[in-house]
């Protein structure tokens, strides 16, 4: 199976084969990351630019580690230190970076469509590391990898995504990926946090957590943005937590072997209780580990390298 796309701008538009190509390659790369010597020479002499216009610890570090484990030169650029603060446009910034011959551009940006805009002006591969509320495709891929590791099969799994769906790129990318792979997806949240015509994405919508997670194989909890309280989305964190926070009691509605995922960072005790985070169902740290493997696999596939070069 081969990855057929030039970039990874979003999950939408990827075929089942594209997604599985990344997951399968990532399984291979994960083996390398567990060795004592974690570095392979695959991308020696390649330059990868990690351009983050939004704060990020997990994703930025994960891309950086992935590149370095493949022996690429990885350059990190933060939005606050880039020319953008001097008034340069995004298009000019990426054209300048390309002029320095980077092989892959990774971009995290606060506005939806930013990765597509960058890709329109670049000849090299672009990886979307999150654009506004649009997509966060590598997160969805690492989530799928994690689910597959624990459940073996992806098709038919019942997944429930809980939280602020409207402002979540993680939810969108996961919904596209999961629907493409034949999974059963539900979303749960207050109506203020469910975007328009959500059902047309092929998901079931619930406003009650217990009903939404009934018989779920997988529950994905989303981070609640504290600053949204007292606006128009929800009155208080207390009420949000009462209605949509996941704890051991509510978890009983799900299947006995349910997996708990969270893209992080976690607000302990708000969207998810400490005993669930640290409990036996949680695979939150496995997600982080798999993130590195997914990103290694992508860099490898996007540069179109053959199997021999891995070793």
């Amino acid at each position: 199976m081969q990855y057929s796309q030039k970039h990874l701008l979003g999950i939408k538009g990827l075929s089942k084969e594209d997604i599985l190509a990344v997951l399968n390659a990532a399984d291979t790369f994960k083996v390398y990351t567990q060795r004592d010597i974690k570095k392979v020479p695959t991308l020696r002499g390649r330059t990868i630019i990690n351009m983050f216009f939004e704060p990020s610890t997990r994703t930025r570090t994960s891309f950086e580690i992935a590149g370095k484990r493949m022996s690429a030169d990885v350059i990190n650029i933060a939005g606050s230190s880039s020319s953008v603060v001097k008034g340069e446009t995004l298009v000019d910034t990426v054209k300048n970076l390309e002029a320095m011959n980077c092989d892959i551009l990774i971009i995290r940006h606060g506005e939806a469509g930013a990765a597509e805009l960058a890709a329109r002006h670049l000849s090299n591969p672009v990886i979307n590391a999150g654009d506004g509320y649009h997509e966060h495709p590598t997160q969805a891929l690492l989530d799928l990898m994690t689910i597959r590791e624990h459940k073996q099969e992806l098709e038919g799994q019942k997944v429930t995504i809980v939280g602020d769906i409207a402002h979540s790129r993680v939810a969108r990318s996961n919904i596209y990926a999961m629907k493409t792979l034949g999974m059963d997806v539900s979303v749960v949240g207050p109506p203020t946090m469910i975007p328009a015509d959500m059902e047309k994405m092929g998901v079931k919508v619930f406003h009650n957590l217990e009903k939404g997670i009934k018989d779920a194989d997988v529950i994905m909890m989303l981070r609640i943005q504290m600053e949204r309280q007292n606006k128009t989305f929800f009155p208080t964190l207390r009420e949000y937590s009462n209605l949509f926070g996941l704890n051991l009691q509510k978890l009983k509605k799900a299947k006995k072997d349910v997996l708990i995922l969270h893209p992080g960072p976690v607000n302990r005790g708000i969207e998810i209780s400490t005993d669930v985070i640290d409990g036996p169902h949680s695979v939150i740290l496995n997600q982080v580990t798999n993130g590195v493997a997914i990103r290694m696999a992508l860099m490898y596939l996007l540069l179109g390298l053959s199997d021999e070069t891995v070793n």
Binding site: K12, G132, A196, M201
Partner: peptide
């Protein structure tokens, strides 16, 4: 416009 398209694109809606 606020619709399935704004939902999918992650853009703010104008109903």
């Amino acid at each position: 416009n606020e619709s399935i398209v704004s939902t999918e694109l992650g853009l703010g809606g104008m109903p």
